[in-house]
Design a protein around this nucleic acid. Structure first.
Lengths: 193, 193
DNA sequence: CGCGTTAGACACACTTGCGTATCTTACCGG
DNA sequence: CCGGTAAGATACGCAAGTGTGTCTAACGCG
């Protein structure tokens, strides 16, 4: 044990361990002990930074949110853009989505919030990007000039989300294309004419 | 305490209490103690019937499934049928859906199952009814002769489901009609031509 | 090099929930 | 009305997790 971590490095290790515990065992089975053990340190080190379970969970989720920034793509076609975005979400945010939606049931009851509230935070910054994405599609003539209803715009992501929540696993590529090609695109073209 | 319940009556009281605890406090905070206390009886009475937490939860969910049978409507129009079905689900199954999808995270990890597995049970018996519903719609000429893809057929219910999971509350009527009128019906008509 | 800071190990009191064992007491059937 | 069955009330031991002390030993800065 010659290497003794300190300060930021130690803190990062703890948050990484907490994140791993959260995603692997869920909020219900999330224990300070497990985090400490996984990080290879000891109880007081943890408590010196976060005074209780709640604070640690909050810090862990915030940290996860700050990682994995999602960038809105510009592939040259609506289909490509939407699919690329879905793939990004599918690849990087599954753990986050399932954690936030499924594992935090207790949290919602305590705070009176709902998954939609947290989801708005997740998606908020993407709103402008989505606007631009659909504007480009309209400009290319892929969809008509009438702006799409919000529910149509979010449709592919809602369905992706739903699929993730139901299977608790990454969504296969053919399901992504099916959602886009048999549901979203026909509707988008029709709804904006 | 002159009234002492026995047999079936007592069992029903226990399962009712368990259901109330599950929906109010979720699986994570579900304790045998709370059930016993809520039912106004004592620990051993519970354990004589279900040997552990898991069995009790299973029995409670099965009981809830057996209640609230959903009947596939025949209103004379596809729109009316689908909307009526959605209203039924919205009115009677919210607790069940949220419980199964959101509160049982720990259960899935322990058993290696996913919400989709339980959902199949929920929806299984409705499959035949849905077939009939869409057959009638085709016969009336509301949709074309080409059978709808499964993903389209389940679309309104998936979106309802998603909405419930996000808000953890009953879905307002205007959202139901919006889903049907701006998403489902246009797509259904188009997809079966 | 020496000193303050803090990581790391360990032990504690406390709480909660589990599953069982024991005993009394009410109910129901014959 | 009487005897078996099961309800109801405690109580107990166990395990897991929490949050807090206390002590040491390593590290980093001046």
């Amino acid at each position: 044990m010659t290497e003794r971590r300190r300060g930021a490095a130690l803190e990062a290790a703890l948050l990484d361990a907490a994140w791993a515990e959260l995603t692997e065992h869920g909020y219900a089975n999330f224990t300070m002990d497990a985090v400490v053990q996984r990080a290879g340190t000891s109880r007081p080190v943890l408590y010196r930074r976060w005074s209780d379970r709640h604070e640690l969970v909050r810090a862990t989720i915030i940290r996860a949110l700050e990682r994995d920034e999602i960038t809105v793509p510009d592939t040259g076609s609506l289909r490509g853009d939407v699919l690329t975005l879905m793939r990004q979400v599918n690849a990087t945010r599954i753990q986050l989505v399932t954690l936030v939606s499924v594992h935090l049931a207790g949290y919602y009851q305590e705070t009176g919030t709902s998954p939609a509230d947290l989801r708005r935070v997740l998606r908020g910054d993407r709103k402008d990007g989505l606007d631009a994405l659909y504007a480009r599609a309209a400009q290319r003539g892929e969809i008509g000039p009438t702006p799409l209803p919000d529910r149509v715009r979010s449709l592919p992501f809602d369905l992706l989300h739903h699929e993730v929540l139901m299977t608790l696993a990454p969504v296969p590529e053919d399901v992504l294309t099916e959602i886009v090609d048999t549901i979203f695109l026909p509707l988008a073209r029709r709804a904006s004419n």
